[in-house]
Write a protein that binds this DNA or RNA. Sequence first.
DNA 1: CCTATTCCCCGCCATA
DNA 2: CTTATGGCGGGGAATA
Length: 325
Amino acid sequence: MTVVAMALSEGVPIFELAAPCAIFGTDRSGSTGGGWYGFRVCGPQDAKVDKWFRAATEYGYDALAAADTVIVPACHDDALNPPADLVDAVRTAYLRGARIASICTGAFVLGAAGILDNRRCTTHWLHAAELARRHPTAEVDPAVLYVDGGQVLTSAGKAAGNDLCLHIVRSDYGAAVANDVARRLVTAPHRDGGQAQYIGSVETVAATDPLGPVLDWAIAHLDQPITVDQLARHAHLGVRTLNRHFHAKVGASPLTWLHQQRVRRAQELLETTDDTIDLIAEKTGFGTSAALRRHFARALATGPDAYRRTFRILPHKTRSAKISG
DNA sequence: CCTATTCCCCGCCATA
DNA sequence: CTTATGGCGGGGAATA
């Protein structure tokens, strides 16, 4: 079992603690067919969390140093100088070969541990300049959600930690499991559009996605019938290889993914227009209302009509009508 | 709901 | 040798 350890420190902001706890700390071995992380919160006894709580941690920084993966959330805001014992523990873990991931200003801990030198990385945009000033050889990119540098991963402010944690799950257990986790958390599996808004390690960048443009193309032509052969041609790949890329990156087969996109668009149209079901079937590329109803019901366990009744966003003029319930 | 036909998918294996 | 590719075929899903 691989151990994921999250660092607490005095005054750590509470927001960033949530994603690692929810993602690594909830057992998903049911989805993976066996394995999951052992999650440990490591820090000083009775550390203050934000301004309102105190944490009784079970593990100290020695456990952090011994972990396979170390998550370092932000340190207390004014003190961009993290505690020395935390820095030491992170450095020890790094030298042992552990994977190190920071959220927000947690990057300053990695910096102090000397592991951002000559490395592409990111942090909260407000503090990017300061990080770059302290570590002149670090290449700080304030414009991305996260940077995957292999052994060392850094993410931007707050919510980007969520993306980073899901990214880690994706690399460890595959896209399907990561999607499943995201779905249970009711977050988007990856941020809008399916294109990667992160910087991968050098090897990853070179080898990554022949797929991105194809996804964009498909979404732009959703209203037309799309075959798997067409997708393959647009990707300059064989059908068999396209299948594999879909499973690796999206976690589903091409047709399944297409259906998901079409259902999603149908939801939008049901919410925001008064189009008939037949028209929506056309606009979403299902072609017939029968096909739309079938896939809609399978995905959402409701029919389009019922969905519209509860989620239609009424234009202002008819807002005064009775509210059904 | 049932049937016929087409399309998709994934393990297997040869190939680069 | 390792890794990515893609053709093939049977069984399953989608569509008409």
